[in-house]
């Protein structure tokens, strides 16, 4: 059953119609909300009623239920919602990048000329990403080596090959 477009709690029971100024409006409302809208119009609170109606029609056009869900999606670590990001354009915490990974991706690609992956080519690496098992390290180096060769960054590739060769029990040529 449809829910009331105003309170979104009760089922819609009335197809409510009104003419405000030059415009016709129609909504599906529950009994209580329909009565409130009637009073608002009847009391001459036209601006209030109009504002509510405008809000609703704008929302109906642009915001689907899907984008609503997206907007109120929340980062589990810092509780920032996507909506908050939309307002401040500042991310809440490091974990937000995971929580909203697919939402950030188009922004990040658009800004960074299509890139969405970090390229490590430094002597310094972040402390937390350093301790890894040899297997993991080898895996990571190999994938970077592949990327470097594909992108024809041969200098980097050579360096990665040497790095791989220095790992215990690995052959860079396999």
């Amino acid at each position: 059953m449809k829910e009331c477009q105003l309170c979104r709690k009760h089922p819609a029971a009335v197809h409510w119609k009104a003419r405000v100024g030059e415009k016709n409006f129609a909504m599906d409302l529950c009994h209580a909300c329909a009565a409130q809208m009637d009073t608002a119009l009847g009391d001459g609170l036209r601006t209030v009623a109009e504002a509510i109606l405008k809000d609703l029609s704008a929302e109906a056009k642009s915001a689907t239920a899907d984008s609503d869900r997206k907007d109120s999606q929340e980062c589990p670590a810092c509780h920032m919602r996507w909506r908050d990001y939309g307002q401040s354009r500042r991310v809440g915490c490091p974990a937000c990048y995971e929580a909203f990974a697919e939402l950030f991706d188009p922004f990040i690609r658009a800004w960074h000329k299509g890139a969405n992956r970090h390229i490590v080519n430094r002597r310094v690496r972040a402390a937390e990403s350093a301790p890894r098992s040899n297997g993991e390290r080898e895996e990571a180096l190999r994938s970077r080596l592949r990327e470097a060769i594909e992108a024809e960054r041969y200098e980097e590739a050579a360096r990665l090959r040497d790095e791989l060769a220095r790992l215990p029990s690995s052959s860079p040529l396999t």
């Binding site: 354009r89 500042r90 490091p94 990048y97 995971e98 960074h112 970090h118 972040a126 937390e128």
Partner: peptide
Amino acid sequence: IPYAFSDRLGFLTACPT
């Protein structure tokens, strides 16, 4: 200091730019 870092996105910052 343990930096906020991800293997995918590198150093994580307050602005995605």
